[in-house]
Design a binder for these strands. Structure first.
Lengths: 193, 193
DNA sequence: CACTATTTTCAGTCTTGACTGAAACAACCG
DNA sequence: CGGTTGTTTCAGTCAAGACTGAAAATAGTG
């Protein structure tokens, strides 16, 4: 299948982006292709469209499955595996966040906890100990936040993101008059602190 | 300078993390070293501690400067360059988010806008056009959200993160009684929708 | 200006991991 | 079961880019 100009550009750009993230180019391209095409494709179609080796496609599809980014769909009268990805970008975003968190964040949190528990921690400067603790606290806070966010429905998540930093008025030290009134009036909503 | 066990582990782990992100190992290690040490260090000290080539340190320091993650501090009676990084993890986080956004997110947004403006867009499926639009909308929303967040003071940002998904009650479709009351009572704060 | 201390540059080497093609494997079908 | 279709594995190749050492550049200092 020959891609139309915009789809081609989209796929190529996504591939480049992928490689500046942790994902390799082919993996990112295949995902972009499935996303933009919006229908299940088999490995040979993908191979032909992207002009890479069949085996490369096979391995990349496996990688995408590990990321929970694609699923195989059976097609009546065709026994080849066909793959599709969600076309809901917010759903997609949620999956990526969840996976990256569990691959990159959680293991680091483990290491930091381990550092603080180890007998060797006492021999470090007090200030260094403090910085490790603060790093852990930051990562735990972000991790908890991400966990909460990915539990939300895509539509809700979108609204929360769009609400954005406006919520700062609920917690800020020098808030506007309106925000102060709100924060003081309803401490029960603001679990923080 | 010989690192103590925990500091060594911290630096090595941070280096590995760096390479699964976009940053190369040495760059991440140097940053971790400056962070955990908490005082300005010169290039030779870093070279000796991390056991890499002097030139590698030189290039990595430049890279860290480009990321705005270190600054050079003059030391009385020593003409060698000394470098330090912030020891405030939230400040650090803010810098990383700002830089990654401008390197990875903003250019992609540009490409997507360009795709939609191009004459070729009309020849794509209606559904594909829609998906590109939605992708752009998602990225713009996240980008705007990040911009707002990094304008906040570290302490405020921390509070907002800790408040977390609880704000969903302000926008959720089936909120608790208290949240509904809040959302209805103060539409002026919730700019969204 | 000659001399020393320090940093930067850069061509070449080395490492890592993506990619390929061929072969093995698995599933189905008559 | 033999043949056909489709998928996965894997050893080897290749490319990107991290890293090095030596040489060049820069900045102080008497």
């Amino acid at each position: 299948m020959e891609l139309k100009p915009v789809a081609k550009r989209f796929v190529l750009h996504w591939g480049e982006m992928g490689s500046t993230w942790g994902v390799n180019r082919t993996v990112a391209q295949i995902h972009a292709l499935l996303f933009i095409t919006g229908r299940p494709m088999n490995a040979d179609e993908i191979t032909e469209t992207l002009d890479v080796a069949r085996s490369n496609v096979s391995m990349s599809l496996k990688e995408l499955s590990n990321w929970n980014l694609i699923r195989s769909v059976p097609l009546m009268g065709d026994r080849r595996d066909h793959y599709e990805t969600t076309t809901d970008v917010w759903e997609l975003f949620r999956t990526v966040v969840r996976e990256r968190k569990s691959r990159e964040f959680d293991p680091t949190i483990e290491v930091l906890r381990d550092c603080l528990k180890s007998g060797d921690i006492a021999s470090e400067d007090k200030a260094a100990q403090m910085r490790i603790k603060e790093t852990l606290a930051l990562m735990e806070a972000l991790s908890a936040w991400a966990s909460e966010m990915i539990r939300l429905e895509p539509a809700t998540m979108m609204k929360v993101i769009k609400l954005g930093a406006k919520v700062q008025h609920l917690v800020h030290g020098k808030p506007s008059a309106a925000a102060t009134k709100s924060a003081n009036a309803r401490p029960n909503i603001i679990g923080a602190e």
